[in-house]
């Protein structure tokens, strides 16, 4: 479980997050949704520790993350996997080297053991035969798969995904979404996904938090969204005329 209590964050006097309290469940795919510029990426980066909140506290299970120093946070960070929007793979390293990096740095495993674990993770994300390719030689979907493999290689307890589907075609997006959901359930991870892809919301949104103008505006599941009368949420989720008609038919 990851919990944020009264989180506020400003940049140069501009409030980006305003008193957000939220709880994300273990074993579920938790989604943060919102318009571009609503503050969802800042919320995700604050939860993961890349930004410090101006006010409020963040808990990883029972541990208050915001109270920890740099060295103490290191232990929790080893339990965190993160998939960045662009993959954030190291350009000068091959697929195998990228996935193996956390093992090189934080385990005492032999080369054979590390290689076995890397192969397992690459098989798990269904990416075989690309071991010695560099990120520049991979497609968008392959980069996301390598990023997922790297994120899970140390068996994390918490998984953060920043717009994992951006730049992907709808079919590949579904594959990536399902992969993240499968991994979440399989390893009982607390997964938080930041997205504005409505297909993802309807496909894997077990718990959804809607952020609007830096505040938590709505919370529920993908089924609740269909029945919600929250105007801002409906404007965001059912933005197109076709989506509006679909919603009207469902609510009838």
């Amino acid at each position: 479980m990851i919990k944020g209590e009264h989180i506020s964050k400003s940049f140069e006097g501009r409030t980006v997050l305003d008193d957000i309290s939220v709880e994300f469940d273990t074993g579920k795919t938790n989604l943060i949704i919102g318009r571009s510029g609503s503050g969802k990426t800042v919320l995700l980066k604050t939860l993961v520790g890349l930004h410090s909140p101006d006010e409020g506290r963040i808990f990883y299970d029972d541990v208050c993350y915001t109270d920890l120093g740099f060295a103490e946070r290191k232990d929790i960070r080893k339990d965190i996997g993160m998939i960045f929007q662009g993959g954030a793979l190291l350009d000068s390293s091959t697929v195998v080297e990228n996935v193996m990096l956390p093992l090189d740095l934080f385990t005492e495993q032999s080369e054979a053991e590390k290689r076995e674990r890397v192969d397992f993770c690459l098989r798990r994300v269904r990416l075989e035969g690309a071991d010695n390719l560099y990120p520049s030689e991979l497609s968008g979907g392959m980069i996301k798969r390598v990023a997922i493999a790297r994120a899970i290689v140390l068996n994390p307890r918490y998984l953060f995904c920043d717009e994992p589907n951006s730049g992907l075609d709808p079919q590949t997006s579904v594959v990536i979404d399902n992969l993240i959901q499968d991994i979440t359930r399989e390893y009982n991870i607390t997964t938080i996904i930041n997205t504005h892809d409505m297909n993802s919301v309807m496909e894997i949104g077990e718990k959804i938090v809607y952020i609007h103008e830096g505040r938590k505006w709505w919370e529920g599941s993908k089924d609740d969204i269909l029945l919600s009368d929250n105007r801002e949420l409906n404007d965001f989720v059912f933005a197109s005329a076709m989506a509006k008609r679909a919603k009207q038919q469902i609510t009838k």
Binding site: K78, I80, M82, F84
Partner: peptide
């Protein structure tokens, strides 16, 4: 600089590096 703007440095920090 490229590693910074493509979040590669953030990725290392998240790993605890």
């Amino acid at each position: 600089g490229t590693m910074r703007i493509t979040e590669q440095i953030d990725a290392l920090e998240i790993m605890g590096v």
